[in-house]
Design a protein around this nucleic acid. Sequence first.
DNA 1: AGGTAAGCGAGACGGTACGTCCCGTCTTGAA
DNA 2: TTCAAGACGGGACGTACCGTCTCGCTTACCT
Lengths: 217, 217, 217, 217
Amino acid sequence: MSVVELIVRGPGASPQGFGGRRRCDVADVASRTGRPRRADVEAAVLDATAALVGDRAYAQVTIDAIAARAVVAKTTIYRRWSSKAELAVDALARTLGDPPVDDRDGATAVRAAVGWLAGRVREPDVRHLLVGLVDEAGRDPELRARLRARIRDPFTQALCERWEVEASVVDLVVDVVLGAVLHRIAMSGDIGDGDVESVVDLAVHALFRGPTVSVEP
Amino acid sequence: MSVVELIVRGPGASPQGFGGRRRCDVADVASRTGRPRRADVEAAVLDATAALVGDRAYAQVTIDAIAARAVVAKTTIYRRWSSKAELAVDALARTLGDPPVDDRDGATAVRAAVGWLAGRVREPDVRHLLVGLVDEAGRDPELRARLRARIRDPFTQALCERWEVEASVVDLVVDVVLGAVLHRIAMSGDIGDGDVESVVDLAVHALFRGPTVSVEP
Amino acid sequence: MSVVELIVRGPGASPQGFGGRRRCDVADVASRTGRPRRADVEAAVLDATAALVGDRAYAQVTIDAIAARAVVAKTTIYRRWSSKAELAVDALARTLGDPPVDDRDGATAVRAAVGWLAGRVREPDVRHLLVGLVDEAGRDPELRARLRARIRDPFTQALCERWEVEASVVDLVVDVVLGAVLHRIAMSGDIGDGDVESVVDLAVHALFRGPTVSVEP
Amino acid sequence: MSVVELIVRGPGASPQGFGGRRRCDVADVASRTGRPRRADVEAAVLDATAALVGDRAYAQVTIDAIAARAVVAKTTIYRRWSSKAELAVDALARTLGDPPVDDRDGATAVRAAVGWLAGRVREPDVRHLLVGLVDEAGRDPELRARLRARIRDPFTQALCERWEVEASVVDLVVDVVLGAVLHRIAMSGDIGDGDVESVVDLAVHALFRGPTVSVEP
DNA sequence: AGGTAAGCGAGACGGTACGTCCCGTCTTGAA
DNA sequence: TTCAAGACGGGACGTACCGTCTCGCTTACCT
């Protein structure tokens, strides 16, 4: 089961109450009666979101524009996602994708996976989505949980299962890599390949040596 | 707009909107004529911004609320800062402050300084401002430059002058620390003291060992 | 904006501001799709306008106040009327109403109708609206046309059809009566019943004698 | 003593309390101490006002624009006139000017004077000023008084003195002529020469026959 | 085959904030 | 004192999105 599938389905249907009255979760299509939902809407909307977010920043992308681009009514979007942020999380998960399969042994493969993540977050669409969500997550605990569950956890989990490293340390590594790359681009507009390498090395080093490093002058 | 300017541009050159042009930078006080700007406005607005941003997130803080809290007209704010972002940068610079003076020798003092930065960014006001600005910086190169110049450069410069480390490496350290802490809080709502330590150690380690680290399993 | 329109114009053709285009005319209800406009909004807004304009002058009445009084969002007003002036014309037409039916023969009835008009324009709401619009009409040809079509023409037409007088002469009579009454009140704050009589007589006299009168001392 | 002089001086210095604290009246330059007022400011400001009001409508002309055009500071304007309306009245009086001297006998000369007034009010500058003031006069009794004293009364008075007609009737004639012409232009954008003639004839007829006319069908 | 329940497109709606414009007042320094 | 210059408080403007709602129509499943 790919991370994307896991994300879209959710790791346990997680009906933790998004949306007051509506049934906004994409997954629980359980209802048998009535006209079934158009199957292609979800992908169209998610792709439209990612495409628009590739050009302008997240806050500049309006729901109306997404709806227009996806050739879908705004109502149809809000029927599936209760807010722009929720939609963005799904769009991000879909755009981000899964790390490539890697048959190599431990450290090499782990480094490659972290490097892949660092590379992905440099892309405008991923970056804009993530930065926009980080902003909104500051004022919405549920969004934080969703973000964790859909973006960070799948990655962490994959690494843990495959190469037996501790989850909490991997979480930190992910936060360091994503945070550092995003912040550097936010400050400078871009980040050089060398600096990406540095950040990844830094983080992965911590992964294997343990997080705490003694400093001698 | 001075009369001289008006004469040069010709009367009726701009059929409406005299006085529309602004000189928004707080710094270029150059103008010697006319009523001088109230000296206390800047501090009042900046403090009001920081105070409001301590409670809710940056995007939730309206210019009207800032004006009301600073007991100042909205127009007065727009006369000095051309946008909310520009105002936020100044508020952040003011709120952040300078690292405490430190007489100790090299590594210890550097670590302390970086640790101080990590601690500051955990505070709600600094964090909200910085996260909000990172979001907006994605779509505004000038804001990026401003952010660099007002927030990161002073810190970097202080470290470089005092303890002779390379600026580009310090920049990276700052980005790693800020990025990692912000991202962790965005994902988890909080960051433990231990994790802060880890991140600081990680970054400072790189500072002294050089950025690139070879990894052996 | 329909999906079809969007497709024709191309996706992303207008990078922001979807839905920015308005169809402000209250009349062209043509659109059959979408949520229908609330039927009671128009009357509520128009009545609110007339009521507020009865107290203070037209320029003092804000759109926000009208919206508040009509218990309607400001955006809803701007969706139907593209400007305050357009709204005022409709409010004026509604408030002014039609001259009372009159079965009497020619001159008597005509005089009564003109007298009715003179009486109506003395009322604060009609007067404030008309004076405000006259001011704005000076800088807006479309508003002039609208004003003619909605206010003067219906009255003129009614008189012409019923009693067979020439339209151009009736137009002049209307302008004389309205103009004179408004101008007198603007200059003096009020106009006596006798003067109203004089003005009406003056105008109606011209109506039947023809407009040009030779003067011998 | 010309009407303009009469207007500028005021028919008795009339210190009826415009402006709370300031001494805004142009006339009472009595003060002996301090720097004397620049003599040319008044004409420059009044001319600038008339010139600007010739292009755009009264409400579109800002005090800043007038100040810029007159090459004068806004403060200087407000030192002499307490509001835009008061300034406009003076500008109107100056622009309007006096009826040309006329040695002919009674009716002919009276008709010529009224015709001159009708012609003046067709000019854009006079018209815009007058219409704008009529609008504002609706909400300001003092402005009404000023308008009467400076615009209508001098004209009326001149006619009364010279040809011995009753003031109240002349007032009505003036209101009919000005009102009708202004209203027609407001409605139609222009008024033909024939219609001006008609209006003048109408009014002057009333002047000599007495206002009330019996109507027989 | 008809009924029922939901999906869908379209767009109106309430609400909030924005950034601009202009008014009339004020505060400085120089004349 | 006057004047130039321009900051200031205040109020309204018209726009932009958000997320909700209400229509009429469509499309499945269930009697």
